[in-house]
Structures are given as C-alpha cells and as structure tokens.
C-alpha cells in the first residue's frame, strides 16, 4: 500500500513538473526578475454536489456553487462573487472509474463600478473528466483529470469572448477517522490537491492558473448524504502579468447528495451489481 501511495504522489509531481515546463516556456522572456505575490483574497464557497442515478451505469451529475468574496468591510462573506452551475452525464462502468461530460454556466458578478463595466458576465464551458479510484483497506485515493473548454471575457463593456482550455489534475484521499471504512456515521479526513493549467491564444505568460491545497473534514450521514468543510489555500499567475501571483483563502462548505431516480424494481439488484 505504501508503494502504491508513493507511486501516486510521484505521478502527481511528475505531472506538475511536465505541465509547468511545457506551458511556461512561452513567457520565459517576459518574467520579471522577482515574482510578486499579491495579498491573499478571502472567499467562502458554499457548494452542493448532486449525483442522481438514472440507470445501472448512467448518472446525472449536478453542481451548484454559491461563492462569496470579501469586500472592504468583511472578509470571506462580503459580496456575491459567482453562481456556478455545472451539469454532466456520468458513466460508471466499474467501481474504480468514472467518466463525465457536460456543460458549465458560470455567472460572475463584477466588483468594479462605473459605466465602462458590466455588472454580470457569463462564462460558458464544455467539460469532460476522467476519475480513477484506488481502493485501500483503510482509505481511498482518487485521481481526477478534468478538461474544460471555456469562453471568457472581461467585465469591460465591449469585450469579446476569448476561447481557452483548462487542464486540471486533482489528487484526493478520503481517510475514515472513527470507523474502519467509509460508511454512514464516518468522519473522514480529506487531503486534496488540484493543479489547474490553462492554454489558449490569450495565455502568454500565465499558464499556471491555480494550485489549490485544501484539506478538509467530512461526515457521511447516509449513503445518500455527506457533508464536508475545507479551508483552501491557492495561488496562481495573474492574467495581467505572469510575474504576479494572486493568493486566496477559501472556506468551502459542501453537501453531497446521491439519489436513485430509478423505478423501485430496478433498484433490487443494486447491491449485487458491482460484486
């Protein structure tokens, strides 16, 4: 088990190194002598993750995120920053692998005032992801690759949409703390690291969009409902200039809902299906 975990971490670091090297070559010449880290921004994300079973192997994945940011008077919960909708059709052929594809519609709320800026902008995306789960006796390890194709524009009026791609890799573990396995009543520890790279014509010297570190604690209330909370730290290159790094501290509160929408009779073999 130790060898498998070490292998997983190794693969992750290798992926970060390679992607950083590939995407970082273009802006090498324009890098400042010293990187600049902006003051961290504080946010609160309240997220819901729904997975609804449609048939033996097909599911509907639905996320709704409500994100707030600091303002001048309050940290973490100052203003509404985004409302984020992500939907997809999910296919789980085996217990260890799942594939999802769908669309995202993010609504961004601007923080700049004046007639020159829009108050709201929309950001549509197409996404697809591939998740591999590695079972161990006491915990589970997850590897997720998510690729998004997005159309993004600035808040400034008259801005055009610019197409870009996001390349995301996530490493995650769920380690039960009070029970031997993940089951109802379990409190679990959830180490989570995600690297998000971006590419496109507009991406010149800032391929590293975000590196997110967000350990969390979760609770499984039932096979249908779980909760978790994370404190996320992330940093990434600013879109204005590659030498600037923005930082964020984000409180994340998540609820996970899994429902079976099949007819009653179809649920019967459920417990045997993956045996």
């Amino acid at each position: 088990m130790y060898m498998m975990l070490r292998g997983t971490i190794g693969v992750t670091l290798f992926f970060v190194f390679v992607v950083t090297a590939v995407f970082g070559q273009e802006g090498t010449a324009t890098h400042p002598d010293q990187s600049v880290f902006n003051e961290p921004e504080t946010l609160t994300w309240i997220n819901s993750y729904g997975t609804f079973r449609l048939s033996d192997k097909w599911f509907w994945h639905a996320e709704l995120h409500y994100r707030m940011r600091e303002n001048e008077s309050r940290n973490f919960i100052g203003d509404v920053a985004q409302v984020y909708n992500r939907h997809g059709i999910q296919y789980i052929p085996t217990k260890n692998f799942k594939f999802t594809a769908g669309g995202v519609l993010r609504i961004d709320f601007g923080d700049q005032s004046g007639d020159a800026y829009e108050k709201i902008r929309l950001e549509p995306r197409i996404w697809h992801e591939y998740q591999l789960m590695m079972p161990f006796d006491r915990f589970r390890v997850y590897h997720r690759i998510r690729i998004e194709h997005r159309w993004k524009k600035k808040f400034k009026k008259g801005s055009d949409y610019v197409f870009g791609n996001r390349w995301r890799y996530k490493f995650m573990m769920k380690i039960p703390l009070n029970k031997p396995k993940l089951q109802p009543g379990t409190i679990y520890f959830n180490p989570d690291v995600e690297l998000i790279m971006q590419s496109g014509k507009a991406i010149v010297d800032n391929p590293l969009e975000d590196l997110r570190l967000y350990p969390g604690i979760g609770y499984i209330a039932s096979p249908r409902t779980s909760y978790s909370a994370n404190m996320m730290y992330s940093f990434g290159q600013s879109g204005e200039y590659g030498g600037f790094y923005r930082q964020r501290w984000v409180f994340k509160f998540n609820i996970y809902i899994n429902l079976d929408l099949r007819a009653f009779d179809d649920k019967i073999p459920e417990t045997r299906f993956y045996d």
Binding site: R53, R140, Y142, Q183, P223, S226, N258, E270, T271
Partner: peptide
Amino acid sequence: TKITFNPYMMVDMSE
C-alpha cells in the same frame, strides 16, 4: 442491512 453504491465516493455503503 441495505448496501447502496455512493457514486460520488465510488464506495459501496451499507446502512
């Protein structure tokens, strides 16, 4: 006991 597959965590859960 009922065993239900949790698709988010990809784990069979009994209740």
